[in-house]
Each structure stands twice: as C-alpha cells, then as structure tokens.
Design a protein around this nucleic acid. Structure first.
Lengths: 221, 221
DNA sequence: GAGGCGCGTTAAGAAGGTGTTAATGCGGCT
DNA sequence: AGCCGCATTAACACCTTCTTAACGCGCCTC
C-alpha cells in the first residue's frame, strides 16, 4: 500500500485530503507543522508528500529544501498563492507539481498518479558557471567532465564564488559564508584556501581573480 | 542538446513557444496538425512534447493515446480548456502535466524541467552496481555469484550507497535513511557499520570510498 | 629608492574526522 | 536460564584537513 504524508496547518484541509487519499487506498499520515512533517517523512517513508506552502514556523519552501537534502520522494505543493514566481521557485527547488487552492479533487488525484508513475533521477540543485558545475546536494564539483576533489572548506569557498560568478565577492562576504558565526576576520587563512582552489582549478576555463583591497571574482577565461 | 516538439495549430502560439524553448537551448520542431505531429515525433525522437488539445482533425487526446502506444516521451498538455474532466482524462492517458492557456512563460519552463527530470521509471525491486546486486524484495545482496550475508543495518546501508552508486552520499542522507526519525547524529556507529560492510565486500569489484567531511561513495574498481 | 601594504606561496603544528578493535547491552532462540 | 547475533558505545592510532606563521614578491606612496 502506498503511503502519503500531508503537511498542512489547516485541519479542515487535512481532513479533506485524508478522505480523498484514503478513498484511493493510501495509508495517510499527517503533520500540522513543518518541523514535525520532516520527522514524519523520515520515520514513515511516504511514497508521496502533499505540502502546503503557507505553514507557520518552518515555511513550506524551507521544508522542501530540507527534505530534498536526503530524500527524492515525489512532492506535490498545495498553495493559495497563484504567483508565478512562487511556483517557479518551488518547482526549481524540487517540487514535482504545484496545485493552487481551491482545487478539484479528481485533478489532484490524477496529478498524484502522474508524479508517482514517473520516478526519475533526483533533482540536484546545482550552480553552473561556464565549464564549472557545483552540485550542492552531492557536494560534488566538476569542471568540464572531470570531477574535482575538494575539501569541505574549499567546496564552500567555490560555492560562494560560483554563486556570484563573474562578479566581485567581498572578503567579508566570503568569510561570513564559509566560516559562519565567526568574527569577520579579514581572512588570514582565506588566501591559503584560495591558493588551494586555484591549484585544483588549474587552467581549465575558470580562474579566480583578485580585486586588491576588495575581494575575489570567479571568471571564465 | 535536448529536442522539443510543438504540436499546435495556432501559428502565433508556435512562434511564442519556439522562442521560449530556443532561449533555453532546445532544438525545436513543429507540427500544426495531429497526424503530422506523430510523424515528427517518430522521426525526430524529441525529449519533450508540447501538445495542444484543441487540434483540428486528429484531436490532442487522440494524439496522446497513439503516442503512448510506442513512446514514453514526457508530454506537456497546453489547452484553453480549464475543465477538470478534461485535465483528468489527459493526465490519466499519460500526459505529464497540464497547463492552461494563457500561461506564464517562466512557469511553463519550470514545469518542462520538472517533467524531464522525472523521466525513466525506476520501479526496479533490484539495484545493480557493477558486480553488485541488491535485491530489495528478498533482502538479499550478492556480488558476482556469491551471496552476501548482511545484517539488517548493513543491508540498509548498502542499499543507500548502491542507489547512488558512483556518487557521493552525504552522512546526513545515510543517517536519515538508515536510522529514520533520529536526530541527525553524524554517526558514531556509522563508521563501525561501514567497516563491517567493507570487510564483507572484500576486494571483489566494489569498494566504499570515504569523502572526508562529507560522506561516502560506492565505487566500482 | 626605501618602506609599507596586500597578496601568493610554502611549511609545520593543531584540530578534527576516520578506521579499527574490543566491550557492553538488548532481544530472540534453544 | 543461558546462548547467540546484532546494535551500540567506547577507546585509541592514524590520517586528512584546517589554521597559523613566516617569507618573497609586486605595487603604491612618500
């Protein structure tokens, strides 16, 4: 039997969804709050997740992000928000479909079937900058076809630079993102790791440029 | 490069879609009529199909049916009709998504990405990675012809690694899947079980590689 | 041209993560 | 009750990575 997980704060909506799903033979679990939903997901291993975007506390987008850190379960977003930007964001993060409330029950069930009959490779959020690809989920980076072997610090550093590829990144920005919670030490050891990165990048299409007194910039060359 | 096929009778719509798709790097083919669309699909083998429901002659539903007789290609339905029954019918026949005209271009592109990353059914009750076979149904694993005697925890661990064979699996991912519902303790005992697995795997074609600070990777060697 | 400043590079100690073995505790089985 | 298998915990040696420090180089200022 397939298992479904409902994450929604409105009790009425949960009841409606539960009825729908149970009529389809699903084993249904519920959570009324994001944090709790993640726990339920880890525990019950649902075959499909129905996630409301308008959650109190941990928001729907955030729940989806965290869920995708370790699971590729099909997720259908339910929301009252019909703004295109929101839809696109959710879909890009890894949602499998986006349905606007109010919705038709038959359509919802049909869309549930669709996202379950096609399971595919995990959606991997990644950053691309020229020949460089940074896979945030798997902590893998590759340049062209060749994989880079990076330490955690080097990876975090490359991530920051790649996110703003082509633009200057302040030393402060880098330090704050790579070593969060620390004083904004203008980077004694930053230079060392930049150096390591440069060596590993070699001269294969991207290079780290220094902007004296300001910071660094990832450049395609 | 991915190939897309547009089947729509309105020239203006085809031009709009072509522009959108080409801006995304697709190689675009068009058909203004159902029968013709099927021929194009057979000839070009597109990676995704955008199908209008309101076609003259051979209707969109009929096109989808015939397409599904021999092809698994992801299909996104475009239609001015917003009736639920129509949506459900299309989705049940095998459409992967249903977008109502008029639509937002960003949303359309996002939904295209989604249905393409979901490609390829993975209902295999069995995972293969080089000489390693993991039978999820019978909870058995074998390497070459020889069966492995694994404890439940070791099996769950090997399963996670084999599912993403060749790629890095984060310690978080492992812990969440092998010991669900627990705090994401980066595994005191994870190392022990990895050790046990390595011993049982021996040096018979697959090995577990550690990516320090990140996780593990199952590698054929 | 001498000095200061920022940066690149290298080396070495410190910190933290990992591999391995052994001991403990729990539950099922005889 | 006693045995056995497995999960968990603890302990320690080892290795990778991080940090710190030192030094050379180029550029700018004075």
């Amino acid at each position: 039997m397939s298992k479904a997980l409902i994450i929604d704060d409105e009790q009425q909506m949960r009841r409606l969804l539960r009825m729908l799903l149970e009529s389809r033979g699903y084993e249904v679990h519920e959570a009324h709050e994001g944090q709790r939903g993640l726990q339920e997901a880890a525990f019950h291993r649902p075959d499909v997740v129905l996630l409301d975007l308008g959650l109190p506390g941990l928001g729907g987008i955030e729940v989806l992000k965290r869920l995708r850190e370790w699971s590729d379960v099909p997720v259908l977003i339910l929301s009252v928000r019909d703004q295109e930007a929101t839809k696109v964001q959710a879909l890009e993060i890894g949602a499998d479909d986006y349905v606007t409330k109010p919705f038709g029950s038959a359509e919802l069930l049909a869309r549930l079937d669709v996202i379950q009959r096609r399971r595919g490779p995990r959606h991997t959020p990644e950053i691309t900058a020229g020949p460089l690809k940074v896979d945030l989920l798997h902590h893998e980076a590759q340049i062209g076809d060749e994989a880079l072997k990076l330490t955690p610090t080097e990876f975090a550093l490359l991530k920051v630079l790649a996110e703003h590829a082509g633009r200057i990144v302040t030393q402060n920005q880098i330090v704050n993102q790579v070593w969060p919670g620390q004083a904004s030490d203008p980077g004694e050891g930053l230079r060392v790791h930049i150096n390591h990165l440069r060596k590993k990048l070699g001269c294969r299409g991207v290079s780290i440029i220094n902007e004296p007194g300001i910071g660094y910039r990832l450049e395609q060359a």
